[in-house]
Simulated assay, not measured.
Amino acid sequence: MIYWDDVEVGAERVFGTYEVTREEVLEFARKYDPQPFHLSDEEAAKTHFGRLAASGWHTAAMTMRVIVDAITEDQQAGLGSPGVDDLRWQKPVYPGDTLTVTGTVVEKTPSRSKPEIGSVRTQTIVTNQDHVPVMTYTSIVLMRRNPDADA
């Protein structure tokens, strides 16, 4: 189990990769972001995207899947998140792209009101196969502290 106490500021981790498929881009767009440039090659060609592009929210969802797979494998003592800061979609994501999710711990803070938990801020960068950033944000994650840390 990885606890808050085990996390080090400055630590960098590649969480993993995700291959973006056309079918998934269309399915997500139909359900959650049905803008024409997410649904139609012809409509996307009329925009700055130039071709069918994934929704930014789909990019965020794919990123979350990569992170959850990694932290589940590690058995991280995560308790969810109160939010993210500075979410930016830097470049379009297209079917056929392979996304890589990397995080760097920038801060950790023990809770003042709940001594059994702490928060961790991580700068997350999602890049495509050409190592170009497509999305960035700072996550805030709550984690359990090691109950045996003082023992």
Score class of each variant (00 low, 15 high):
Thr17Ala: 05
Pro36Phe: 07
Thr136Ala: 04
Tyr18Val: 04
Gly10Tyr: 10
Ser113Gly: 10
Pro95Met: 11
Glu116Ala: 14
Thr72Gln: 09
Ala11Thr: 13
Gln123Thr: 04
Thr136Asn: 00
Met64Asn: 04
Val101Lys: 03
Ile67Pro: 00
Ser81Ala: 08
Ala54Pro: 05
Val132Cys: 11
Ala151Met: 05
Asp41Val: 07
Lys114Gln: 13
Thr104Trp: 00
Gly103Thr: 05
Gly96Thr: 06
Ser139Ala: 14
Glu73His: 05
Ala29Glu: 02
Met143Thr: 02
Gln76Asn: 09
Glu73Arg: 12
Pro147Cys: 14
Glu23Tyr: 02
Gln75Asp: 11
Thr17Gln: 12
Met1Gln: 06
Thr17Ile: 00
Pro110Ser: 08
Ala53His: 02
Val84Trp: 02
Gln123Asn: 14
Val14Gln: 12
Tyr137His: 15
Lys46Ile: 06
Tyr3Ile: 03
Arg22Trp: 04
Thr127Glu: 00
Tyr137Phe: 15
Ser111Trp: 04
Ser55Gln: 06
Thr104Glu: 08
Tyr137Gly: 06
Thr138Lys: 10
Asp5Ile: 10
Val126Asn: 04
Leu142Ile: 15
Pro92Ile: 06
Val14Glu: 13
Pro115Arg: 14
Arg30Glu: 10
Thr127Met: 01
Ala60Ser: 15
Pro34His: 01
Ala77Arg: 10
Thr102Gln: 08
Val20Asn: 02
Glu8Gln: 12
Gly83Glu: 11
Glu42Met: 01
Gln123Leu: 10
His131Arg: 15
Phe37Gly: 09
Gln129Trp: 05
Val84Ala: 08
Lys108Leu: 10
Val9Tyr: 03
Met143Val: 08
Val68Pro: 09
Thr21Val: 03
Val66Leu: 09
Pro110Thr: 04
Pro92His: 07
His38Trp: 03
Thr127Val: 14
Thr98Met: 07
Arg112His: 11
Gly80Val: 10
Lys31Tyr: 00
Phe49His: 11
Asp130His: 15
Met1Gly: 14
Glu73Phe: 03
His38Asp: 02
Glu116Phe: 08
Asp130Gln: 15
Arg144Cys: 10
Thr63Pro: 05
Phe49Ala: 13
Lys108Thr: 09
Thr104Ala: 02
Pro36Glu: 13
Val141Trp: 01
Asp97Met: 09
Glu23Trp: 02
Met143Ala: 14
Arg88Glu: 08
Leu142Arg: 12
Val105Gln: 05
Thr109His: 09
Gly83Tyr: 10
Val68Phe: 12
Trp57Thr: 10
Ala149Gly: 02
Gly96Phe: 08
Lys114Cys: 00
Thr17Cys: 02
Gln123Ile: 01
Lys114His: 12
Tyr137Glu: 03
